[in-house]
C-alpha cells in the first residue's frame, strides 16, 4: 500500500515538473507526459481504501442490526432515522456533542490567545534569555498530557475542578506547537512593518489586533482546525476526570452507546450512528477551511 502511494506520488511530482506542456496534454489525455488513464485509477484506489471503512460506517448506521457479512449487506438500510433518533434522544448524544463542541471551542480560543501573546513576546520583545524560554516551551512537547495524567488528576481534584468543563479544557490551553508555528510565521513578517508601526506610535495592543492578527489570518485558521480536531478527539482524559454523564464528551459517549447493550447483542448500528455524528463537525471544518489549512503547513514566502 505505501509502495503504491509512493509510486503515485513520484509520478505526480514528475508530472508537475513538466507542467508547462499542460495545454498539449489536455488534448492527448496525458498530464505532463503521464498517462491519466494509469494515474487516475491508482489515485481512486488509494482514496477508496481510505474512504471504505467510513462508507461502511455510514451504511451500518442505517441498518437495524448492523452486522455486515456479505456484499448485499452493503446496501443502505431503512432504519437511518430511527437509529439517529435513538442515539440523539434516548441516549442523550446531543448533550455529548454539545459538551464536545464547548470543550473544543474553549480549547481552540484559549490556545490561540495564549499562543499569540507568547509568540509575540518571543518574536518582538527583548526578553532576557528569550531563546532559552522558547526552548523550554518546545521542551514541553516531550511531556504530552497523557504522561502527566497522574499528577494532573491529583491537581485537578485538589482544585475541586473534577467533573467540570475546567478540568477538560485548562490542561490543554498552552500549546508549544501553536507557539512554534506562530513564531515561525511572525518571523516571516518583514521587520520594517513592525518598525513602521513603532515609528507611527502604534501601541502593542493595536499592533496585535490590527496588524499581526489580520496578517496571520490563514495561519490562525489553519492551526485552529488542527487544534479543534485534536481537542474534539480527546478520549482518555475526559474518561478519567469526568464522572457524570451530563458532562461527558462525545468520544466517551460513544463508549456508553456500546456499553449499554452489554447484556447480549451489541447494537452496532447505534454505535455507527454515533460515530457518524461525531465525525461530522471535524469533517465540516476540514472541508470548509482546507485552503488555509494547506497554506499553514506549506513553506511560506513573504
Amino acid at each position: 500500500m505505501t509502495e503504491l502511494l509512493q509510486q503515485a506520488k513520484r509520478r505526480y511530482e514528475s508530472a508537475r515538473e513538466t507542467d508547462e506542456d499542460a495545454d498539449e496534454s489536455e488534448a492527448t489525455g496525458t498530464f505532463g507526459g503521464v498517462n491519466l488513464n494509469v494515474i487516475h485509477p491508482q489515485l481512486w484506489l488509494l482514496a477508496g481504501l481510505i474512504v471504505f471503512p467510513i462508507f461502511v460506517t455510514v451504511i451500518v448506521s442505517t441498518k437495524e442490526t448492523g452486522i455486515v457479512t456479505s456484499l448485499p449487506d452493503l446496501l443502505p438500510g431503512t432504519y437511518a432515522l430511527e437509529n439517529y433518533r435513538e442515539a440523539v434522544v434516548d441516549y442523550g448524544f446531543g448533550r455529548f456533542m454539545w459538551n464536545s463542541l464547548l470543550m473544543s471551542v474553549v480549547i481552540v480560543v484559549g490556545k490561540l490567545t495564549i499562543s499569540v501573546f507568547a509568540a509575540m513576546a518571543i518574536v518582538y520583545y527583548r526578553v532576557p534569555y528569550k531563546d532559552v524560554v522558547f526552548l523550554f516551551i518546545l521542551f514541553t512537547l516531550l511531556l504530552p498530557v497523557p504522561v502527566r495524567f497522574v499528577p494532573l488528576y491529583q491537581l485537578i481534584n485538589d482544585l475541586g475542578w473534577n467533573n467540570s468543563m475546567l478540568a477538560i479544557t485548562v490542561p490543554y490551553l498552552a500549546s508549544a506547537t501553536t507557539v512554534f508555528i506562530l513564531r515561525q510565521h511572525f518571523l516571516s513578517i518583514p521587520t520594517s512593518i513592525v518598525e513602521t508601526a513603532k515609528l507611527d506610535g502604534v501601541g502593542p495592543v493595536k499592533f496585535m489586533i490590527q496588524v499581526l492578527v489580520p496578517m496571520s489570518k490563514s495561519v490562525l485558521v489553519g492551526v485552529s482546525v488542527i487544534m479543534f480536531v485534536y481537542a474534539w478527539n480527546q478520549y482518555l482524559w475526559p474518561l478519567i476526570i469526568i464522572e457524570s454523564e451530563a458532562n461527558q464528551v462525545t468520544q466517551v459517549g460513544l463508549q456508553l452507546l456500546q456499553g449499554d447493550v452489554q447484556g447480549g447483542n451489541l447494537s452496532w448500528s447505534l454505535v455507527m450512528a454515533g460515530s457518524v455524528l461525531t465525525l461530522l463537525p471535524p469533517l465540516a471544518l476540514m472541508i470548509l477551511f482546507r485552503k488555509p489549512l494547506l497554506e499553514t503547513f506549506t513553506i511560506q514566502q513573504k
Binding site: E195, V202, M215
Partner: peptide, 30 residues
Amino acid sequence: KDRNVAMVFQNYALYPHMTGRRNITFGMNS
C-alpha cells in the same frame, strides 16, 4: 514615536491587508 520622524523602507512596509488609504491613515489615527 516621540521623535516625529517618518521612515520609508526599501520594501515599502505597507500593511498587506489594508487599502492604500488605510495604510496612510493608520499611523495618523494612532
